[in-house]
Write a protein that binds this DNA or RNA. Structure first.
Lengths: 217, 217
DNA sequence: CATGAATAGATTGTATACAAAACAATTATA
DNA sequence: TATAATTGTTTTGTATACAATCTATTCATG
């Protein structure tokens, strides 16, 4: 295997800090609803306010952060409303991608099967979440529509914090893995309507689980 | 009618200059493929580079502009590829919005009828484009999914320059108006499948027209 | 003549500076 | 006591400064 450089060289501070910001928002540190003090956060990240603001504005478009005039940035609070808005959107877009991939979907069946096996057995919730993401990315990887893929990725970043916060439990993982298998079987049969139905079920089920957990707080 | 303040007070330079930037990109001045010299453009707009860059980064997410490290901003060139990517996306999202609006669609039928009449008779291509945009906005206005509406608006901004550049001709306007009427009739009948079909037809027809004109250059 | 090194100028990416707005604490006022 | 005015501090939004990088030009070299 080709040796890979560990330190991929900087893509500019604005882009470099984005993953670190995302991590803080999803995993904690930057609690939903809390205010961001630019100078503090910039110091913590070791950059100046300029690239920090540019990165935060990027997150604003993804819906993770909001920016009010003269009031600055706040972490967008978690809301059932957002869940009800984004999951169906994601379902529709992923269906569109599947449709546009057509017979190419067959190509990824082996990989998908393997990932799903790992997913079912994954120990930690975070690992499960990561594998689920990879599974869906792989499913969509045959679509030529870069714009669509970027959109899906963006929306998935938005729901990641819900998935993290209201942790996935073993029951859900096993149900979700079964739904993945149903989709795989539909691909093998070449039954596009069943594929689409499967994707919708998978997302709407995920949404229900989150909404239920949010209600039970 | 309530008198409205003409000078709505500034939402901050970053937001203020956005429409002006968009206008320049769509209507000319900033030709597709051309490079943006931040200092020049900032001077032209009468602001400093800081809010200009923030606005340009916003346009980057909308796909109108690209930003490469140490090479700065360029206007994204027009491409058949983008057309083929965005129109179907838009069609799918507008269908989703229509579906989620359900019976509420009936409420906007009168307004839609009126707008469509103006649209058919509209003199200039630009006026037609504007009315078409308003028609679709109105159609979607009953959806409660703010995220979805924002997405659609963003994608429509992306295609506006194609619609402007490859000008709408009289033939297309009349066809498009007929398609609008078909959608309206489907709404009156309460036939959701026909509504969705109508929206798809409308967008895919628009896409074909643009693609043809792009090929005929 | 073509190719490449060297240099000067332009342009970006980031840091810093500063005025205006928001916020907090304190004192004045009913 | 509760409300309003005042002052001082914090924080934002924008402008400016500056180093690193890119680009164009000149000049040398085969």
């Amino acid at each position: 295997m080709q040796a890979r450089r560990k330190k991929k060289r900087s893509q500019g501070l604005r882009r470099d800090i984005l993953p670190r910001l995302l991590e803080r928002i999803v995993e904690g540190g930057l609690t939903p609803g809390s205010k961001i003090i630019e100078s503090k956060l910039a110091a913590e990240l070791g950059v100046s306010r300029t690239p920090l603001r540019e990165a935060l504005l990027h997150l604003e478009r993804e819906g993770l952060v909001r920016c009010d005039l003269h009031r600055g940035f706040t972490i967008e609070p978690l809301s059932a409303r957002e869940v009800r808005e984004v999951y169906p959107l994601l379902a529709a877009l992923e269906c569109l991608a599947a449709r546009s991939s057509g017979r190419l979907l067959h190509l990824v069946v082996p990989v998908l099967t393997r990932i799903n096996a790992d997913f079912r057995r994954s120990g930690s919730p975070d690992k499960a979440l990561e594998l689920d993401t990879i599974w869906h990315e792989t499913l969509l990887s045959q679509s030529k529509n870069a714009r669509l893929l970027a959109l899906v990725a963006s929306l998935r970043r938005a729901i990641r914090r819900y998935e993290h916060f209201y942790m996935v439990d073993a029951a859900r993982i096993s149900t979700s893995a079964a739904q993945h298998r149903a989709i795989l079987s539909a691909i093998r049969r070449g039954d596009m309507e069943a594929i689409v139905k499967g994707i919708e079920t998978n997302y709407l089920f995920g949404m229900q689980v989150i909404l239920r957990k949010m209600g039970e707080e």
